[in-house]
Simulated scan of single mutants.
Amino acid sequence: MASISMEIVINAGAGDVWKVIGEFATGPSRMAQGFVLDTRLEGDHRVVTFADGTTARERLVTVDDDARRLVYSIVGGTVTPEHDNAVMQVVADGERCRLVWSRDLLPDTLAAPIHKAMARGLDVIKKTLDNA
């Protein structure tokens, strides 16, 4: 199983960043404007459409507001891993915060393209949420 873990520093308070990251229904469109074109709810799933045409149907696993931790899983769309577990967590760091994004997935062959997409996404998230 491939494991990916990445983090960025965001020049904004953890509470303000969590208001965006922790909102399952609209978070992707708000945190990664331009990288994500649309996010919509379909029952207890969200469908995220990316600028490159990729779609991901994601199931919410849990939201922990106290820990500022959101867990979700890709269960369909144009990329369909055998297994996917993703965690986004906002960690306070003084007046700024860190966003830690990790995922475990199968098959291992998805690690390189998912890592690349996560890196691009984190760049956009930082630009969007810095000084929010």
Rank of each mutant, 00 (worst) to 15 (best):
E7R: 14
E7W: 03
V9C: 00
V9A: 05
I10Y: 05
N11P: 00
A12M: 08
A12C: 06
V17R: 06
W18A: 02
I21F: 07
G22T: 07
A25K: 11
A25C: 05
G27C: 03
G27L: 03
P28H: 08
P28N: 12
S29W: 02
S29C: 07
R30S: 14
R30Q: 10
R30V: 12
M31L: 14
Q33C: 04
G34K: 08
V36C: 06
L37T: 12
L37G: 12
D38G: 03
D38I: 05
R40F: 13
L41C: 12
E42P: 03
E42N: 14
G43Y: 05
H45Y: 14
H45A: 15
R46G: 04
F50R: 11
F50N: 09
F50W: 11
A51P: 01
A51L: 05
A51G: 00
D52L: 03
T55L: 04
E58S: 09
R59D: 10
R59Q: 15
L60T: 11
L60H: 14
V63L: 15
D64T: 09
D64W: 04
D64C: 08
D66T: 14
D66Q: 11
R68Y: 07
R69Y: 09
R69A: 12
R69M: 10
L70A: 11
I74G: 04
V75L: 05
G77C: 01
T78P: 02
T78E: 01
V79K: 02
E82P: 06
D84C: 05
N85D: 10
N85A: 04
A86G: 10
A86M: 09
V87I: 13
M88E: 04
M88H: 06
Q89G: 10
V90K: 00
V91A: 01
V91M: 05
A92N: 02
G94L: 00
E95K: 05
C97D: 04
V100T: 09
W101M: 02
S102M: 01
S102I: 08
S102H: 01
R103Q: 12
R103F: 02
D104Q: 11
L105A: 10
L106R: 09
L106K: 13
P107K: 10
D108Q: 10
D108H: 12
T109G: 01
A111V: 08
A111C: 05
A112V: 10
P113M: 02
I114K: 07
K116A: 15
A117T: 10
M118K: 03
R120M: 12
R120L: 14
G121C: 14
L122G: 14
V124E: 09
V124W: 07
I125M: 11
K126E: 01
K126W: 09
K127G: 01
K127M: 00
T128A: 02
T128N: 07
L129K: 03
D130M: 03
N131R: 10
N131T: 04
